[in-house]
Design a protein around this nucleic acid. Structure first.
Length: 874
DNA sequence: CGAAACACGC
DNA sequence: GACGTACGTGTTTCGA
């Protein structure tokens, strides 16, 4: 059967413009709307497989609708220049794809679509319309369905007759009558004042259409409604007419001209190159099965580690194909220096004393990508690596943490075109990963070594230009070695303890499961929100407070509001909590215990967060439960690795707010910290203007939430959610806070100003975060960038401080000849294991070093706790 | 295999 | 007038 796909060009481009960040290509032309439009087009062509296709555009400013109603679509904001300059490009896109386009003076795109759809229907076509707004829904019929993009590119809602009935309870043709009565503010269609969607729907269900309603005014209930209908009869008729999509537009060509065959590969490639659509080009190549070939480089496959390989500096690659370098095999080693590029099998390298000596020689300079991975991977092979001077991963991350893919291939591509293939393209991914033949492997990892050597001076220059040499050399590089040691050393886990807890949790789960099924009256999978939703909100008829895009929301904050509605709720909440503990923390941790040592070796990612914080993965040891006692018990399973040793934890008190006090120079905040006051109580006193003894729990809770918001850059909405208050109240809290601490306000404004002027904000130690969206026309994007501008210097500087403390603590341990070991970092907290005889020394040393690592205008404070397990270090 | 929903920490 | 709202990691379910 023939299938015609019709796309509303302006409205899709408009949606995409606001949905996507303001991208521009290398000539400075904005391309986000074109990009989004192209994505939609590609998707439509692939998924719909149309035999016929056309895109309609609005032409000119005025249409026949303005003849009947001058104010049609008035009051709309002018199309931003950034968008209108993209519209001509859409035509190039369509031409390259060989898609017919239509536009006609005096008519809107909607009318062209209506006309083509009608004609196609007459010829027995199946028709599908794509648009960014709902006006076109009136075209829905047996043969025609209408899809509109909600937000983003992938979120598309399709309406056929059935779906339309379900959504509106009307016939598609009645949509115009609906608009006739209720109007449409976006098109400035007046409708009947005072009549909204509810009333209009009710009347239409009873009387069919606008005429039907008007001729039975007497039967309409409600005096006001009656009066309004009487008074605005003509306006209702006119509004209805305005909403009607024409199906008789005098097009010069009809459906036969929209026949679609396929697109021309060369033309599309050229177009994408001009527009700078790298990712789309890649997709094209993949689909066309075009393999990315690079010219072979000269690589020497070595059996022995020769003298010429020891030249300094050298790039070193230790190829670990699995993401987890603690367990990954090593597929090969590259050394690249002035004498050439050399690749060795691991076994051959390990058999070479000269290699081990070279690796351990501090004076032999090594350039690597991911110093921690390289050092740790060699460490597991019994090779002690020293002399690592430059880590391209960390350099790239410091230069711009947002540069999404910090993999060598991507960095090399950015700096000097593609010279390294992506691991995925060489090895395959997931279950399909495979070790290639020696020659292919040698080429691949040889290229990595060469790229590294070339990259190093370029990245170094960029670091210099950013004033980040000190940050790089004195903070992040030393830190990466420390993190590597922490990871390799690992944390001891009491497996028996975990297993016991697992059994207890299982019993609780079985019991709760039974009770929940009983209360629900049927058995179902409690872990499935999709099954749980209907049970709660249909079967048990609990009030629906929030929906997700796929169904009912059953998240904890919603369930908490339903606590008293049904006794199943508390049990559900408990079930969720216990099930999380069991799966993530008991089973999850047991799964990653190293079989021979009984230890857990996490990986700290030093190059991922946008603020400069670390993250931890496989397992994540930065989110072990603490808030609720039941979960906190998990910490009993984290124990010292040697008999009689202890766990010692030291955490900074309010480090972010102290950093804020220092950077903003706010006198009240500085004073509060100098006098060591409880900061939330102090904030409550200042904001509510009360004496210390008048601060209620509620006041302190509110103040704490506001401080939390300051630290994490949450919005008025976020604050309102966490306090369970309205958005307005939340906003007025924030306003009062800023009025109370004017220097903080000034500081925040200054950060936003910085971001606007330089494009980025910085931390105490020159860490950087770019915020291009600070100038976005999209309110959300701009607001988010503004909050980020305020928050990143605070959170990022706090991250700087604790990172420096880690470097200092490690040095102090060496200087003092202590055996205590740093195990973990949890953002504002350091965790050690210590021999008992070092307890007194560590109790003094750790806070002293942490507090003294940097001098601010407020004192830093670190509190120490210790015990036999992590649980007891409280 | 990837997306969505949910939950844990800071 | 609506937008969709700290980050990062991990588990489970579910549909392609």
């Amino acid at each position: 059967m023939s299938k015609l796909v019709l796309l509303d060009g302006n409205s899709v481009a408009f949606r995409m413009f606001f949905a996507l960040p303001l991208l521009s290509n290398d000539q400075g032309v904005y391309t986000n709307a074109v990009y989004g439009f192209t994505k939609v087009l590609l998707k439509v062509l692939e998924e719909e497989q149309p035999t016929h296709m056309a895109v309609a555009f609005d032409a000119g400013k005025t249409t026949f609708r303005h003849d009947t109603y001058e104010a049609y679509k008035s009051g709309r904001e002018k199309t931003p220049d950034e968008l209108s300059e993209q519209l001509p490009l859409l035509r190039d896109v369509l031409d390259a794809f060989g898609v017919q386009r239509f536009e006609l003076e005096n008519y809107e795109a909607d009318d062209i679509i209506g006309t083509l759809a009608k004609e196609a229907e007459g010829e027995g076509f199946q028709v599908k319309v794509f648009s960014g707004d709902k006006d076109l829904l009136q075209l829905v019929s047996k043969q025609t369905s209408v899809a509109f993009t909600q937000k983003g590119i992938s979120d598309v809602h399709t309406y056929d007759v059935t779906a339309f009935h379900e959504a509106y309870g009307l016939e598609p043709a009645q949509l115009v009558d609906l608009k006739g009565l209720m109007g449409d503010s976006s098109d400035n269609i007046p409708g009947v004042p005072g009549i909204g969607e509810k009333t209009a729907l009710k009347m239409l269900k009873a009387h069919g259409d606008v005429e039907g309603v008007l001729s039975s005014i007497e039967q309409i209930s409600g005096k006001k409604t009656k009066e309004r209908l009487q008074e605005h009869q003509d306006q209702a008729r006119m509004s209805r007419d305005l909403a009607v999509i024409r199906t008789d537009v005098p097009l010069t060509e009809g459906v036969e001209a929209t026949a679609y065959d396929s697109w021309n590969y060369e033309k599309v490639v050229e177009l994408f190159q001009n527009l700078g659509f790298q990712s789309l080009l890649k997709e094209l190549e993949k689909e066309a099965g075009i393999e990315h070939k690079l010219d072979d480089i000269e690589v020497a496959l070595q059996k022995t580690f020769t003298e010429e390989m020891t030249a300094s500096p050298a790039a070193l690659v230790v190829e670990t194909p699995d993401e987890n370098y603690h367990h990954s095999p090593v597929w090969g080693i590259t050394v690249s220096n002035e004498n050439g590029t050399f690749v060795m099998e691991l076994e051959d390298a390990l058999a070479s004393d000269r290699f081990k000596q070279w690796a351990g020689d501090e004076s032999k300079e090594k350039v690597v990508f991911d110093a921690k991975q390289t050092t740790v991977a060699l460490g597991w092979q019994g090779v002690h690596l020293q002399g690592v001077r430059f880590d391209a991963l960390i350099a790239s991350y410091l230069i711009d943490p947002s540069a999404s893919a910090h993999d060598l291939a991507a960095i090399a591509e950015r700096q000097h075109g593609d010279s390294v293939l992506h691991d995925e393209d060489v090895y395959g991914k997931g279950a399909k990963q495979q070790k290639p033949g020696v020659d292919e492997l040698a080429q691949h990892i040889g290229r990595k070594g060469e790229a590294l050597l070339k990259l190093q001076p370029v990245l170094l220059e960029a670091l210099k230009a950013n004033n980040q040499i000190d940050l790089f050399e004195s903070l992040e590089m030393p830190l990466s070695l420390i993190l590597g040691r922490m990871e390799t050393y690992g944390v001891q886990v009491d497996e028996k303890q975990l297993q016991m807890m697992g059994e207890e949790l299982n019993e609780t789960l079985t019991k709760l499961e039974q009770e929940i099924h009983e209360l629900a009256g049927e058995a179902f999978n409690i872990n499935s929100p999709k099954q749980l939703g209907p049970i709660l909100f249909e079967k048990l008829e609990l009030p629906v407070l929030k929906k997700t895009k796929t169904g009912y929301s059953t998240s904890a904050d919603i369930l908490e509001k339903l606590q008293d509605e049904h006794e199943i709720i508390p049990k559900l909440l408990h079930y969720r909590q216990v099930s999380k503990l069991k799966s993530t923390y008991v089973d999850g941790l047991l799964k990653v215990v190293h079989p021979s040592t009984g230890k857990i070796h996490t990986m700290f990612n030093q190059a991922i967060t946008q603020t400069g914080r670390l993250s931890s993965a496989e397992p994540n040891l930065q989110n072990i439960p603490i808030r609720l006692e039941e979960g906190r018990k998990i910490r009993k399973a984290f124990i010292p690795s040697q008999n009689d040793w202890m766990i010692l934890a030291a955490d900074y008190s309010q480090i972010e707010l102290r950093v804020l006090a220092h950077m903003s120079q706010d006198e009240r905040l500085i004073e509060a910290f100098r006098e060591d006051m409880d900061i939330h109580t102090k904030t409550a006193m200042d904001v509510f203007q009360v004496q210390p003894e008048e601060v209620t729990d509620q006041m302190r809770r509110s103040a704490k939430a506001v401080n939390f918001g300051i630290v994490y850059g949450i919005s008025d909405y976020g604050l309102s959610q966490s306090l369970g208050i309205s958005r307005n109240e939340a906003q007025s809290f924030i306003d009062t806070y800023f009025a109370t601490y004017p220097s903080v306000k000034a500081y925040m404004d200054e950060q936003i100003e910085n971001a606007r002027e330089q494009g980025y904000v910085t931390t105490l130690m020159h860490r950087r975060r770019y915020l291009p969206e600070i100038t976005s026309k999209n309110f959300n994007r701009r607001s988010f960038a503004e909050r980020t501008a305020m928050n990143t210097p605070i959170q990022g500087s706090a991250a700087d401080v604790i990172k420096k403390a880690m470097v200092d603590v490690e040095q102090a341990l060496i200087d003092e000849g202590l055996e205590s070991r740093l195990l973990l970092q949890v953002h504002d907290e350091l965790i050690f294991e210590i021999p008992p005889h070092e307890l007194d020394a560590m109790k003094r040393l750790v806070p002293r070093v942490m507090e003294g690592t940097i001098e601010l205008d407020v004192p830093l404070q670190a509190d120490v706790a210790y015990g036999d397990t992590w649980y007891d270090a409280k």
